[in-house]
Amino acid sequence: MLELRLLQGGLLKKVLEAMKDLVNDANFDCSPTGFSLQAMDSSHVALVSLLLRSEGFEHYRCDRNVSMGMNLNNMAKMLRCAGNDDIVTLKADDGSDCITFMFENPSQDKIADFEMKLMDIDSEHLGIPDAEYQSIVRMPAAEFARICRDLSTIGDTVLISVSKEGVQFSTRGDMGTANIVCRRTTTVDKPEEDVIIEMEEPVSLTFALRYLNSFTKATPLATQVTISMSSDLPMVIEYRIEGMGYIRYYLAPKIDE
């Protein structure tokens, strides 16, 4: 028996919107720790890792570890039928091939049940070791989204270079080139607007903008985004979900030949 009740149903809506363009089908893993997912895009260039900890739910019952295969587009469609302020409950009986999404409006006078078929999905789980990254940038999520969007109108790839002073995003295309530098900020009054850089070594890596633009669909989930880079690892773009966990995107860099 599985029963997860989330007071902020809007959060689950945002989580699905943040994943459905990157991944078609995925297994959600439910354990006493929380509700999680790891999945790659079809080309295995990007990976998304989601964790919603059990403590973040108003009620969390998961009698045994269970993996439920879902089509993320269909799940997003069902969740779009929930109001942003609705309470969302996920329910599944042991061995059932369906999951039920129950939506309750804030005044509790409208209750909706949506039942979705589960799928058998063969997916491989990759081990992601803890790593010390050479450069970590924390910046406003909306600013990062804006930069990725703007640069993708000029070129297909972005060179991200981190130094002690700041982070530089560069691209080139048929019409010309673009460079955006975000300097490290030193203000203390508005931490949500800060650009913070923790650098062990300068890093310069090239990534496909198409994927970064897809990751920025998670922007409504967090005010800040953390970008971690090392020269020999995929970059990690993390959006922390307050009180619940995170959504992390891993993106393999372009490799010089």
Partner: peptide, 14 residues
Amino acid sequence: KSSQGRMESFFKPV
């Protein structure tokens, strides 16, 4: 010239 790296080049299946 550059090529796109893949996840399995960095992380191994468990």
